[in-house]
Design a protein around this nucleic acid. Sequence first.
DNA 1: GTAGGGTTAG
Length: 695
Amino acid sequence: MKAQNLCTFSKHILTLTESANVANIIQNYAKTNQLKKAKQLHSQLITTGYPLCTYLTNHLINMYSKCRELDYAVKLFDKMAARNFVSWTAMITGFSQNQNFVEAMTTFCNMRIAQESPNQFAFSSVIRACVSLGFVEFGRQLHCLALKCGFGCELFVGSNLADMYSKCGVIRDACKVFEEMDFTDEVLWTAMIDGYAKNGDFEGALLVYKRMVNEGVVIDHYVLSSTLSACGALKASYSGKCLHSVVVRLGYESEISVKNALTDMYSKVRDMEGALNVFEFDFEPRNIVSYTSLIDGFVEMDQIERALITFVELRRKGIEPNEYTFSSLIKGCANRAALDQGIQLHAQVIRFTFDRNPFVSSILVDMYGKCGLLDDSIRVFDDIDNPTEFAWNSLISVFAQHGLGKEALETLDRMIHRGVKPNAITFVSLLTGCSHAGLVDEGLNHFYSMEKTYGVVPREEHYSCVIDLLGRSGKLKEAEEFIKNMPFEPNAFGWCSFLGACRIHGDKERGEIAAEKLMQLEPENSGAHVLLSNIYAKEQRWEDVKNLRKMMRDANVKKLPGYSWVDAGNKIHIFGVEDWSHPRKKEIYEKLDSLLDMMKEAGYIPCTESIPLNVDEQTKEKLLHRHSERIAIAFALISMPVGKPIIVKKNLRVCADCHSAIKYISKVVNRMIIVRDNSRFHHFADGLCSCGDYW
DNA sequence: GTAGGGTTAG
């Protein structure tokens, strides 16, 4: 029987059969979201002139809630002459489904005041509201009440409880609920998998999945999506691929959430071919999540160009980008310091009104900072109404990268004053800031108080920061003592910091120890070899330099080639050492030569001592003058409008000679030059650098 | 007789 043909009934009072038929129609309208027809039927019922029975009103309340017309549902409920427990439950569910969680809870309380006993339906709806609000304490009370009423182990209530505890970060209680259940199903298992994942225990999530498979529980697309997401987070490519084969076997390849989870998993394990295969499989369905997962993969692979192309493609298809999309793209621009693209994306963020999103605004602070535009970064931060921890961390890290340790410390104070709790990342940035600014005591004080005062347990990276802090300031003995007393061995970053400090301060004995440790930890890392050869070269120990080079050859260690890049004319121009590939190479080298003359006239003396080659001075000078950052600066000088600050990015640290040379360049061409190397920013102007030569 | 649970990109 077709729904629309059922709308005839007696004009006086509805018979039982008629009521049942009408209820059936309303239910169908609710399911198919046919609000207009449902409203017509409702008016028809009113014209009979008789009050509607509770049973039909409950149906109408449910229908209006499902069709997102909560006001109608509330009006009906308020006017009801005889509510029963189903009416109350329908309202609680209605509020909960329409994201009106506080009302859902209030209605649950009112239901108890009205002395109606809540059943499993009411409990599951109100617990869901608790999950969304993160009200774990209220949820705990509901749990007690549910147990008292005999519904604590009911399957739906149990699933909601497990979900609530895990989403509120109390996975232990979720496990207790799970273990006490008489029956389980795939929904409850999914809540557990997702619970472990949301609490950061991705291995735990995979174990739950394995246990589920062993127990023969149905695997559906919810289970697969959640488990794939855990694989991605773990970068577990083998497990991910195994799950992919399960997806194929069970025929879930075209299920959008599974497809997206697969795309994301492949992106996270840096297998873009795999990600594209899934993304392009069967073409549809695709949505913004699919596109953003792909974009994020490209960004992580440092392929910002492909990320931007993917963005253009989704816009051409008429798909609306969201805050996730912009966050990923802007992060890509920040990593590559692609300012022009970053600014264009910022404009779009404003147009789409995502500028108030905490993730987007924080990444914008970071982007401007990483592009060297400190003032713009601060301006974006100041425009944020209630900065979250992400925004504060971004700002602190921006100050740190610019060597502004005092500002970083002040920002931490402001953050605390505003009631935002610092986390582990805050302290990494803060300690880095102190280190680059030579604020040794301040850095140490914060390191020793971070656990006591703020409850943040120092991790490997914090210890590395302290090694850097002490080493950079020349306190090599203290750094060595600190390393000895650490609860664990320093990681590669820690030894690298120590080695770098030994190089700056010319401590070859300690340097050799650090280099050895670093080579053991990361034999493929060329950094240790290069730093050590710099130390040897400084002492003119050419035999040692030769041996080291042989060692590198034998171990197949390739020196990471240095390159610099600059944004000009909406394009990123990349230059390597002695780069001859650019179409304007002739002009660039003419510019370099004329610069060298001007610099020497102004007093520049090349510092060739750290070049690990036994060649004559003039050759060394020439080599230095062909370092990629100088080529990039020369190119920027001939191609960018006068007055526009020159921002050059480099993948390695700027060498001491380039640092001195760029100071002279800034003076002789009277131009602000900003250089971002792999550890911090240098703002050169009028012959001076913002780092004050402490770096 | 009506009302309820778990997925995918920070």
